[in-house]
Amino acid sequence: MYHNSKEEYSTCIRRIGNNILYLSVTAERPVILDHFEGDLVAEVVRDSGLEGKPFSIIWNLDMVAGLSHSYKKGVGSFLYLHPQPSLRCVVFHYIRPEFIHTAECIRSIAPSTMALLFASGYDDAMKSALACMKDGAPETGESEYPRLRNEFLGAATRIGWLNMLHEHILLPPPGHELFPFFSGMALLQKDLAEQQEIHKAEKDRLLVQYGKETENMNTQLSFCEKAMKQLLLDSERDKTALSHILSDRKQESMQSSSAYSGDRSIALKQLCHGIHNLDIDRQRKKEMLKICNLLLETERNEQKIDLPLTTTDSDFLTHLQEKHPNLNRRELKICLLIKLSYSNEDIAEKSGISRRGMESIRYRMHKKIGLRKNQSLKNYLTQLSTSAF
């Protein structure tokens, strides 16, 4: 049984007797058949053991209102392009009025070895199929007009259903009353064939054009990819060069800073010595020496943590180191930055470590200073800074 994709109908084929297949369509309302069931017919023929043996088909069309173009092509291929030599007879019955013309078109392309008959009901169809299987196709005895009418329908069906635009159409004599119709059909066939050739030529032209455009685009893409790779290489090279330059500048800066710091320390020591030797008021000398010593202490603290310091920051570091002498230089620097409300990310960047490394250092400092788990390192350092003054 065949079910169409839209679930609007189903086609059933069953065998009656030894050599008759009965096709019927089940639907709630008359439908347009959308896919020819050629595979289903072949399967039933094979399963019924009828391959290579004469058989007939009775087709109940009471729920068939029409055929899709795809179905027409399938029927045309089954009957005309690939005729079934063992199929002796097809009988249509319960043909709906709107389907009469389509049924006649099918009959017009039926091969001469097969009879395609119309019947009013099941009994009539069964009698026709049995008679055909026994005695062969009945003689039509058609007069000229019905015969030409059938040929005209056949030509139109082959053109419209099967796109056969180069098959010769037999014309009646020029003086015949149907000659203009056949001649018009032949001209239509020729025009359609020419249009098909034009369409094919245009299609081929577009394929060539699009092929060239695609080739050009691929070439441009390849060029862009190469350019991008070169830009990335240049960027990496420039990045490396800049990194070296920055490293060199940093080293120079550190050397300059160290030299400057050393010069400043010497200058401050000389200044303290000079103040000590001054013949001035004792109290004033004491105050001046205190300021000078504070500057020297700030200078020493700056050298420890490699950061410029205010006097307040220097006092904080001195007090912190006195209270926790087990803290190393990096930890002192980190404590100062925490006290100054720097974030972990900023401290990690200034210290040249990762964020995860920074978190590990804070954890170790927390234990090193001796804080409880619920105590904040930031609050402790802030309080220590306040107590330093």
Score class of each variant (00 low, 15 high):
V75W: 10
L162K: 06
C132E: 02
L79G: 02
M164C: 12
L87T: 00
S108D: 07
L87Q: 01
H101I: 06
R149A: 12
L50S: 04
H101A: 14
R107V: 01
M63K: 14
A131C: 08
P97M: 10
L61K: 05
I159D: 04
F78I: 03
T113E: 14
R88P: 00
F118Q: 07
L61P: 00
M63R: 14
L87S: 02
Y71S: 09
L130V: 06
F152G: 00
I159K: 07
P138V: 05
A155P: 00
F152A: 12
M133S: 11
L79D: 01
K134C: 09
S86N: 07
E151M: 14
Y145E: 10
D62R: 09
G136W: 12
G136H: 11
L81R: 13
N163Y: 13
I159M: 15
S120W: 06
L87F: 09
M63F: 14
E98F: 08
A110L: 10
C89I: 04
L165K: 02
M126N: 07
D124Q: 10
I58V: 14
E144L: 15
T140A: 15
F92T: 01
C132K: 06
K73N: 08
L61H: 08
S70L: 13
A129V: 03
I159W: 05
S86A: 15
I159Y: 04
R107Q: 12
F55C: 03
N150R: 13
D123C: 03
M164G: 00
A129Y: 06
S70Y: 07
L67V: 03
F78V: 03
P111N: 10
F99N: 06
A137F: 03
L67M: 13
C105P: 01
N163M: 14
K72V: 03
R96V: 05
M164E: 14
M164H: 05
A129L: 05
A119V: 06
M126K: 06
I95A: 09
S68N: 09
V90D: 00
G136I: 02
A103C: 13
H69S: 15
A155K: 03
K53V: 08
H101P: 00
L81W: 08
V64I: 14
F92L: 10
R107M: 14
E51P: 00
A125V: 03
N60K: 08
R107L: 11
K134H: 11
S120N: 11
F55M: 05
K134E: 15
R88K: 15
D62N: 12
E151S: 10
I106Q: 06
V91T: 04
E139K: 11
L50P: 00
T157G: 05
T113V: 05
Y80M: 08
C132F: 05
S143R: 12
R147M: 14
V91G: 02
T113F: 09
I106R: 02
T102E: 15
I95S: 06
K73W: 06
H166W: 11
D124P: 00
S70W: 04
S68L: 12
D62Y: 07
E144K: 10
Q84I: 06
R96A: 11
A131V: 01
